[in-house]
Amino acid sequence: MALRRGRGVAAVNYPTGMNLGGDPTQALVHSTPTGSFMVTLSSVDLGQGLRTVIAQICAETMGVPTESVTIDTADTDTGPHCMGTFASRGTHRVGNAVVQAAREARQVMLEVAAEELEVDPADLETDGQGNIRVKGASNLNISIFDTALAAHFKQGRSISGRGMFLVPRSYPETETGAMKPSTCYAHACTVAEVEVDDETGEVSVLSVKNVFEIGRALNPKMVEQQLIGGSWMGISHALYETTEPYYPNRTQGPRDYNAYLMPGPGDLAETEIAVLERPSGDGPFGAKGPGEMCANPQIPAVANAIFDAVGVRVDTLPITPERVLRALKEMEAAGAG
């Protein structure tokens, strides 16, 4: 009986979004009288930071400071339609809709400013600090604050824009089942190192080294944060999370956090994260969806590492000590027979 070490590798492709109904999301952008911008959405921020990244996308497209953008996700009854926050689609789908809406709003904003400055809108640019100026003649300028006031109280215009994301529905081919379920794909690869106790069946993950290809990281710190958390969650899926075993029957199963296990702060693997950025052709500023993808490759990598360590293939998740022991016994029995 011994502690046995093993190493496993796995790689995944992960789709961004889905195809059902064309995966639509709509967005509206409008300015307040004082030149702040509201993005109205039905999309939900689950804590992954959608509101932050959408504010960045809107500000970058409009050419205004990020602080002047407010994201309103208050009400799915009254907001523009969104399919929802799932399938790693938020940044990509909502972002695309917001880019379109913000472009339209920017055009109106420049037209209003052009009227005030008595120039052609095509000659205007934004400085990203809250001002609009004539290209090559920055002394000819107007603040976005004053532009919004002029739109509301003088010109009678609404600085606003509409945007949406929609892909053509793809139906499976009858013969082959082939279809195009998503638009772009993120990728990841993990090398996991484990130690397996062949007496108890317990597995500890010593280290995970992850490489993620996620398109362009629009907010690198938030991406890194999600990847670290996701890597942990992948290990949790691989080894911990289940409402089984339940002895002698289902009523003895875990019903609370005491018995539904996840790795705690004392069970962490040494974790490395590397990010590769290959901008997607169809994402907002090249983004893809890093969300769910980042918790996937750890699972097969850990399973492969266990195989490398003790020679058993456990193909049911999570790989609990019981399953490892049963597999070891089967292997022993097969060897003896």
Binding site: G47, I228, G229, M233, G264, P265, T271
Partner: peptide, 9 residues
């Protein structure tokens, strides 16, 4: 218990 961060941060 934390479900998001993986505790390390």
């Amino acid at each position: 218990i934390c479900r998001c961060t993986g505790y390390e941060p």
